[in-house]
Structure formats: C-alpha cells, structure tokens
C-alpha cells in the first residue's frame, strides 16, 4: 500500500512538474512587434507573416504595430529600445536600419540588438528590352568602352541596391552612371520610360516586369542562379566575374530584433519559436511566392551579418558624404 501511495505521489509530482513546466514563465502575456517601416512594405509584411506563425508556438498573440519615421527607422527603434528589455517587445527591422546611427537618427550601434533574420529577396541586374546587351559581359564591355555614360538606377543613394551596384562595379570593373530615385518602384518606372537603361533592385520587386518582358535580367548578384516561374533561370554574375565574390553578395536582412540584454532564457524561447516557425510550410510557401531567400540566422551568425552590413552601409554613406556622424567615432570598423 505504502509503495503504491509513494508511486502515486511521485507520479503526481511528475505530472505537476510537467504542468508547471508547461505553465512557463515566458511569455505570460502578448508580445508586441514594433515594425520600424510603414504598413504594407516589405519589412511589415514579412514581420506580420512570421509573427502570425510564431504566435501559436509561443501560445500568446504577437501584436504587430508600425512606427515609421525618423531616419532609417530610428523612431521605431528608439521606441522599441525604450521599452523594458524583458523580451515582450520585438523590433521589426531590415538591413536599411543599420544606417540610423551614422545618419544621426540615434546614438547606438546595431550591437545593442540580437537579430532573428527571416531573409530577403536577392538583387538582380536587368536592362531595358530595347538595349543591346544580352548578358552581363556585354554590358560590362560596353561600360568599359565608354565609362560613366550608361545610366543605371538602384533605388536611393546608400540603399541596399545602390550598395549592390557599387559592389558590382568594383568586382567587374564597369563604370556606370548612377541615377538616384526615391525607392525601387520609381527607379523601375524610369527604366520603362527609357530614362535609365540598367536597373539593380530585388527579384521580388522586378518579377512582374521580368515576366512581362519589360525588363531583361542579365545576372543575379548572388553566388547562385535563381529560377523565376514562367520565365526561366537567371544565371549568377559570379561565373563571368569571379572577382564579384570579394564584394558580394549583399543580402537584404529582414526580420526582427530584441534588445541584446534580454535574459538569455527568454531569448532562447523566442529563438526556439522562430526556428520552428521558419520550418513551417506556410513560411516556405510565402517565401517562394514572394521571391525571398530564407535565412533563419540567429545568435552570433545574425549578429555577424548585421555587423558586416553596418560597416558596409555606414562607410559607404560616409564616402558618399551622406552620413552626418563619422562611423569611426561610433566605433564601426571599416569593411
């Protein structure tokens, strides 16, 4: 009898223990994801999708709110950072946020965050259908013959696409005339009006025009080729110009961040949910439909990625004289 009682007691304790463990101490209430860009933009949509996937895993809601403004999302980042560092506030960020410090938006480096990178759409270089260049080599040769005359657009100065264009120029030796536009859409429109003939933006942004044969893709600016359904495969530019590997790829890094000093056990809970969500069919399908390449980096790998982006972006902006704070003063190493 005693034995049975003891066994029952042990069992009770065990189940109680399991129940207690299930009734974990984080998260106990809803999380808030502060997206630092506007509703409907790439970062916003990406954060809404990943938050929706993570919520059932965590067992609480993740409320996504938008706080755009400032420079490079500085308003939203300052706001999210000013909240208690308890893991309940996420900041929905993208690679463009790394310039907030050198642009005077706030006074911190990106190493105050820990990142969870969902991914991004890779960049592709395309030309207008009426132009004579059939592949990257043709374009580079033409650019070498008459340097600085072929007009290329790649969103605004200091944007990720501009950085890709600069890296392409360094890696291939081509000299193009960069024309800045306020975003990828106006830049692609300019290609359609014939104002510029070369476009560097992401596959996601160009896919409609590529499939409608309004733009002719020459090469991917990543080591792999990329297949667009209903069009075909775009080769990587790295084959013709192995030198590109020194400067590229520069990936978009869209995802979210938490303050780096959030307790490690809480970060681990978020990380586990993030990793599980990244494996879900819904995320994979969403990525495919939206021409994203998934990353899934967390912890040190994600920190390294953002450090590299921060150094690249900051020093490029400084060289373009578009930064107001010296990156050296902030302690950002040169790329």
């Amino acid at each position: 009898m005693k034995k049975v009682l003891a066994l029952a007691l042990v069992l009770l304790l065990m189940t109680g223990g399991v129940a207690l463990a299930q009734k974990k101490d984080f998260p106990r209430r809803d999380l808030t994801n502060v997206v630092v860009w506007g509703a409907g933009g790439g970062t916003d949509v990406c954060n809404r999708v990943i938050s929706a996937e993570m919520a059932p895993i965590l067992g609480v809601n993740i409320n996504v709110i938008n706080k755009p403004g400032g420079v490079s999302g500085s308003l939203g980042m300052s706001y999210a950072f000013s909240q208690p560092h308890d893991g309940y506030t996420l900041a929905g960020v993208s690679e463009s946020c790394v310039t907030a410090a050198v642009q005077g938006g706030w006074d911190k480096r990106m190493n105050v965050w820990d990142f969870f990178i969902v991914g991004g759409s890779p960049d592709v270089i395309s030309v207008t259908p009426g132009s004579p260049w059939k592949d990257l080599k043709g374009l580079v040769d033409a650019a070498n013959k008459s340097p600085g005359t072929i007009k290329a657009c790649a969103s605004g100065a200091g944007s990720i696409h501009h950085l890709n264009l600069l890296a392409l120029e360094k890696g291939s030796g081509a000299d193009l005339q960069f024309i800045p536009y306020k975003g990828s859409a106006p830049c692609q429109t300019a290609a359609m009006t014939g104002e510029v003939s070369v476009v560097v933006t992401s596959v996601a942004e160009q896919q409609q025009l590529i499939r409608a044969k309004q733009l002719r893709p020459l090469a991917m600016l990543i080591p792999e080729s990329f297949t667009i359904e209903g069009f075909g495969t775009i080769p990587s530019g790295f084959k013709a110009y192995p030198g590109l590997a020194k400067h590229l790829p520069i990936y978009q890094a869209i995802g979210f961040a938490v303050a780096a000093d959030v307790p490690a056990d809480r970060k681990a809970v978020i990380e586990a949910a993030f990793k599980k969500a990244m494996q879900s069919e819904k995320i994979k399908k969403w990525a495919k439909d939206n021409y994203y390449v998934l990353s899934g980096k967390t912890g040190k790998a994600a920190r390294d990625e953002f450090n590299r982006l921060e150094s690249l972006f900051s020093w490029t902006l400084w060289d373009l004289k578009a930064a107001s704070v010296d990156p050296a003063k902030l302690g950002i190493p040169k790329p």
């Binding site: 506007g38 509703a39 409907g40 933009g41 949509v45 859409a185 359609m192 409609q208 025009l209 309004q214």
Partner: peptide, 28 residues
Amino acid sequence: SLGIPGSPPAAMLLGALMLHGVTPGPML
C-alpha cells in the same frame, strides 16, 4: 497595369495590395 501608383493615396493602396498578396503590374 504597370504597378506605378498615380497619386499619393494610390501609393498607399499599392502597399495594401501587396499586403494581401496581390502584386499589381503587367502580369495582374
């Protein structure tokens, strides 16, 4: 037809459409 918003409110509409998985443009 082109994925180019013709006015500022239409630009917001573009964002909203993307959010709902409809990418306006020549393939629409």
